[in-house]
Design a binder for these strands. Sequence first.
DNA 1: CCCTGGTGGGACGTTAAATGTCTCACCTTG
DNA 2: CAAGGTGAGACATTTAACGTCCCACCAGGG
Lengths: 338, 338
Amino acid sequence: MWKRLIDIQKSVVPDILSHMLKRLDILSAIEEEQPIGRRTLSKQLGMTERVLRREVEELAEMNLIKVDAKGIALSAGGREVLGEVQPFLTLIESRDDLALQLKNNYPLKDIFVVRGDAEENAFVKEELARLMAEELTEALSPGTVVSVAGGSTMALVSKFLRPKHDNLLFVPARGGLGEEPAYQSNDIVANLAEAAEGQHRILYAPDSISEASLESLKAEPMVREIIDLNRRSAFLIHGIGDALEMARRRKVDEETLRILTEGEAVGETFGFYFNADGELVHKVKTIGLQLGDLDKKESIFAVAGGESKKEAVKAYLKLAPENTILIIDEVIARHLLA
Amino acid sequence: MWKRLIDIQKSVVPDILSHMLKRLDILSAIEEEQPIGRRTLSKQLGMTERVLRREVEELAEMNLIKVDAKGIALSAGGREVLGEVQPFLTLIESRDDLALQLKNNYPLKDIFVVRGDAEENAFVKEELARLMAEELTEALSPGTVVSVAGGSTMALVSKFLRPKHDNLLFVPARGGLGEEPAYQSNDIVANLAEAAEGQHRILYAPDSISEASLESLKAEPMVREIIDLNRRSAFLIHGIGDALEMARRRKVDEETLRILTEGEAVGETFGFYFNADGELVHKVKTIGLQLGDLDKKESIFAVAGGESKKEAVKAYLKLAPENTILIIDEVIARHLLA
DNA sequence: CCCTGGTGGGACGTTAAATGTCTCACCTTG
DNA sequence: CAAGGTGAGACATTTAACGTCCCACCAGGG
């Protein structure tokens, strides 16, 4: 809903939003080294003195800055605005420039970069989920099967999904991974299906079972169906997590933890742990989608945001197939470009 | 929260809103009699042809309108924008012009007019509640006692109230009026107190009891306290309702209904039913604030919105004391000026 | 104590944009 | 087919924006 107002403004008065961003840039430049002079500031921002001067005059008139012999400084109002506007910036402007740079370095199907830090600002995380919902809807057609992995960001996607196609089917990509219920793919597919007015399947597979009973489970018709659906599905949507963080959340046993540590695992996605070179370090013993199935998908939507996941995403890109559509926040994008 | 983005925009790029509203005006003018020519339209909107022409050219460039030999017409995108923007208009622009006109006709302390129709658009009702919360906060000081009446709009006020003063005390203006629980003042004072991090009192008085037990109830210390508090309180906040609608919601008995109908009651506020001349037709037998106490208050915040309440508000203004602060929507404002 | 490098504000000619006004060819509708 | 309304073009004029100076001022350091 928030996004809607901004979209309307974008379509009715597009230039003014950019004007707003320009002024906010000026304000934050002032904030950094106040008091600062007009000329020094203009050079720093790459605009001519006269043009900046006009902006400064107007900003002063609205009491966002105060300008005296010492130079230009933020007023109380200016500080307040600058502090409060941050969450909204995410919604107003995505970092398409960063996305473009990334596309030159990584041969992926598409890349989206959301402004901000998903761990600092809840809006950013929601925007990541919103974008995934939007792009997924774009790609879907009636009757499509979508494999769905778990995770905290994935759990938000259903909030932004709308029914636009008939007979969609959401299936959990893999069995239980020890995650807490709300972030389990079983829960998430149910919510997605409700939001999209589609169908879903549940995969009843306990967290950790013996090799033997795993095999017998695979023979069950209901389980078979899900394995088949995952093999056939046109899309996969999933998040990317930090390896040790995920291991902690899933309360893995000592032995596994040792494997992860010794294997220098940095990232995890739907049960697969990998190191900085994108090599598999460990996989959770459960049923469902395998890494080898990824190439056959039409698109794979991968989402991640926040400082703590930057190494994970960098490593993930070493194993990501070319049909991947990557949705990340600014923090991660910068790290990938560094 | 919605309001916050708009407030920021107002302070950073004040023109954005006026320009946006101007273009929306143009769009809705087009919608009314499309296809329409530039010159005809310019006369209708009171702007010169050239100025309108510029706007039209830009609107066409963004595909909000399509312009051909037949004239100017809305495009699909234009219709969509116009349909979706309506809820936001309420937040962007209050009808201060109408408020000003009203102030000339009614000798009240202050009047606020929110754009739109509270019965058509939920945002309008929320904005009414938000305004009341804002204006009340403005007026409060530490330790203030506030009398609170019930109602559906009043129930929303707590959503927008923030703790800004210490030791506030919210008391129910009158006893139970037969309203459903969520709209009872007992419930509302509790929510308000929680939102403002203040105290509240509950008034345990059954809906309809005999005259005798009412008298004995008044002697109870806890009840006494509330009667005293209501007499002493600096502020009263309440809604205004349509008489028969309120009677229906409260499931009053046949006898009362007869009194209301024969007395031609049109409005109701905290248990008092009045006719079009502002004369008392009936009052609910319960404990608490009396009409005579109103003059002593510092301010009385009265809120109402929606077509069905317009007669009630008009009548209410005949009995409203001069320390009333009226918060209404556009529909009611227009009716008061008609 | 004065000099230097920064500050804001004033000024002004130049350039670009916005505006008011009129004309023309065209289409539609009665 | 004629009349009235349509968009588009044109152009002189006004208005705003701009680039580029200069000036008085002030603070800090030699």
